[in-house]
Simulated assay, not measured.
Amino acid sequence: MSHTAHIPSHRKPRQRASKSALRAGVAGGFLSTIAVAGAAGPAQAEPVTQTIEMPTITDGLSTAVAASAQATQQVALDLETQASEDAAAEKAAKAAKKAHAEAVRKAEAKKKAEAAAKAEAEAEERAERASRTSERTTLSASSGSSDSGSSASSPSSSSNSSNVSGSAASIVAFAKAQVGDAYVSGGTGPNAWDCSGLVQAAYRTAGIDLPRVSQSQSRAGTQVSLDNLQPGDILYWGGAGSAYHVAIYVGGGEFVGAQNSSTGTVQRSMDYDRPTGAVRVL
């Protein structure tokens, strides 16, 4: 027996003739049916007459669009308002900064001006003292030896301000009441004076209007000797008509005057700073 006699064959068995014929018949019948249907022509379709109503969505859409537009407009308005507020705040900050800088500048300028005025007043005081010293030296040299004894004491010192009456009393009382007030160049009261402003105000209490400046006040009345003074007389330093300082004689060999920014308004003895001359208005 052969070694391969029991090994089955792997070839497919042949199909039977009956099955092949059956399949061929089925296929031919199918193709014949298609051919007959094609020859008969397409069948006429029945027209569709039913109407389908679609839902309306435009109402809801328009409302949504309107709401969206309103919201957008509000957002734009809010942004514009915020921008305006930010701009106003920035402008206010710049204005405040500028105002602060201006205030600082003015304060510094005022401080410098006050310092300059103080220095000028001190310089004027030194110049006045030097001029008065020179004036006294000149007068002493020209007076002669015969007057040297009488000039050492003033006969008018016997006049006591307590015995003054009438207009002179009013003038003296007003002048004494201002002692301690400040000296300010151009001052006319009520708490700060310059020399001629004080004299003018004192005489005004007696109903007398004097010129404003010391040069004119030194020629406002009759020239009198310093040895024959009466309370209320105007003392002056410098020449008559060119005086640089005036004061009021109050009796007892003393005067009241707005001297300078350092001393203010004081009552002093005539020996402190002897005047050049005097005039009597009353």
Rank of each mutant, 00 (worst) to 15 (best):
T56I: 15
A96C: 08
E46Q: 05
Q82D: 13
T72P: 13
K91W: 07
T56Y: 13
A27W: 00
V65P: 15
D86G: 05
E80I: 06
T58C: 03
A17C: 00
T51S: 08
S84P: 07
A21K: 01
A101F: 06
L61E: 03
F30C: 15
P55H: 05
A66R: 09
K97Y: 04
I34A: 14
F30R: 14
T33P: 10
K97A: 11
A40K: 08
D86I: 04
A45R: 08
K19I: 08
T56M: 15
S84R: 02
F30P: 15
Q74K: 04
G28C: 03
A92R: 04
E80A: 08
G28V: 01
L31M: 09
A76T: 10
Q73H: 03
M54T: 13
T58P: 04
V26M: 08
S32W: 09
K94N: 14
A64M: 02
V48K: 12
P47N: 02
G41W: 00
V65I: 11
V48E: 11
S32F: 10
S32G: 15
V75F: 11
L22Y: 07
K94Q: 14
F30V: 14
S20P: 04
E80L: 01
L79C: 12
Q73F: 03
Q82K: 12
E46I: 02
S68N: 06
Q74S: 06
Q70L: 01
S68Q: 06
Q74Y: 01
V65A: 13
A69E: 15
A66S: 15
A95C: 02
A87I: 03
K94V: 10
V65R: 11
A83I: 06
K97E: 12
A96S: 13
S20W: 00
L31T: 10
A76P: 09
S18F: 02
A96K: 08
